[in-house]
């Protein structure tokens, strides 16, 4: 590996990580603001103009709070839990194509950290790892509520991973590749997958909500029953990590949804732009506009729908989404087969 490529990749990793963390930080602000607006309130508006410095104030508060570790907890795992949650959340961003090429100061940046030909499996793999942070933290707290939260999280994750995987299989069959770069490249212009896979998108979106532990699937941390669920015993920056990981997951999920179903960095009329520099930046901006839209939808749903009951959650996952995903997969397979025979 030559050093220029290495430096390029390192820069890209740092930039993407920085953007991820920044967006996760400001997601907390956006969440509070959107929640307030949907409820006819103002939201945070004291720290800076429009409360724009609120996340920094929150972070400061988190840092300076007393860090409690329960005496009866498994100390090692208790500390590891938030770390694992954060790590897995950050790792997922590596396989997402953030654009095609970007020309900065005469260099050509390829906007994907790792172009692995199984990108989508990589993302599923790391998303499914994410549950360990919650499970370990919940169990190590040595608290019944935390354990309940951990157990709910794990069973929920496993259940919804199946439907998620099945809905992705339909996309994979249609596009004929597992590489996210190619999936994005195939959706040139407005030829987005959503037109072919509307049902798959609904299933995937529902599962993404469940995988991120977002309302209405936030049973692992539901305050009314479990106090704080898996993070009941956590305080200070460890709690901050858990909350942060949730927002990072939300960001990555939005990016994956945008890439799989909404054309990633593609936008209608992209062929008419001559300058490749401008095109690169526009693609980058398009992807982020889509991501922000989905983050908004995530929050919008959270502040609209009430939480599911646990049996309803399992019912929805196993008896509705999985059969639907299988039907969707079979229909897609039939269409793909017919098309390949006729042409």
């Amino acid at each position: 590996m030559d050093s220029a490529l290495l430096i390029e990749k390192i820069v890209l990793v740092l930039v993407i990580l920085g953007i991820t963390l920044l967006i996760a930080t400001y997601s907390t602000y956006a969440e509070r603001k959107i929640a307030a607006f949907l409820q006819d309130r103002q939201g945070p508006n004291r720290a800076g103009i429009f409360g724009i410095l609120q996340p920094i104030a929150d972070a400061g508060k988190m840092f300076f709070k007393e860090d409690l570790i329960p005496a009866a907890s498994e100390k090692w795992l208790f500390i590891m839990g938030p770390g694992i949650a954060m790590f897995t959340a950050c790792m997922t961003g590596a396989a997402i194509p953030w654009g095609t090429e970007l020309h900065v100061f005469g260099y050509t940046l390829h906007m994907q950290i790792a172009d692995i030909d199984i990108g989508i499996l990589y993302i599923i793999g790391f998303v499914s790892m994410g549950v360990y942070g919650i499970m370990i933290g919940g169990w190590a707290s040595n608290n019944k509520y935390s354990l309940y939260g951990a157990i709910r999280a794990s069973s929920q994750m496993i259940s919804y991973e199946l439907a998620m995987g099945l809905s992705i299989i339909a996309v994979v069959m249609m596009t004929g590749t597992l590489s996210l770069k190619e999936i994005a490249a195939q959706q040139h212009g407005i030829n987005w997958n959503i037109w072919y896979q509307p049902l798959g998108f609904i299933i995937f979106f529902t599962c993404a909500l469940a995988e991120c532990n977002r309302a209405p699937f936030d049973l692992p941390e539901c305050d009314s029953e479990l106090i704080g669920g898996y993070h009941t015993e956590y305080s200070s920056m460890k709690l901050g990590f858990y909350l942060f990981a949730e927002y990072i997951n939300m960001f990555i999920s939005s990016a994956v949804i945008a890439t799989l179903y909404f054309g990633g960095y593609n936008f209608p009329g992209m062929d008419f732009i001559e300058s490749s520099t401008l095109l690169g930046w526009l693609q980058f901006a398009t992807l982020f506009a889509k991501i922000f839209f989905f983050i908004f939808v995530f929050m919008w749903i959270r502040w609209t729908l009430p939480r599911f009951r646990y049996d309803q959650l399992m019912h929805l996952g196993w008896k509705s989404l999985i059969p639907l995903a299988i039907v969707n997969m079979l229909i897609t397979a039939a269409v793909v087969l017919l098309k390949s025979n006729s042409f």
Binding site: S154, M157, I158
Partner: peptide, 13 residues
Amino acid sequence: AGAIMVLFLFVLM
């Protein structure tokens, strides 16, 4: 690591 071990851990917890 993602599915089977989660079940193991689930039962052990």
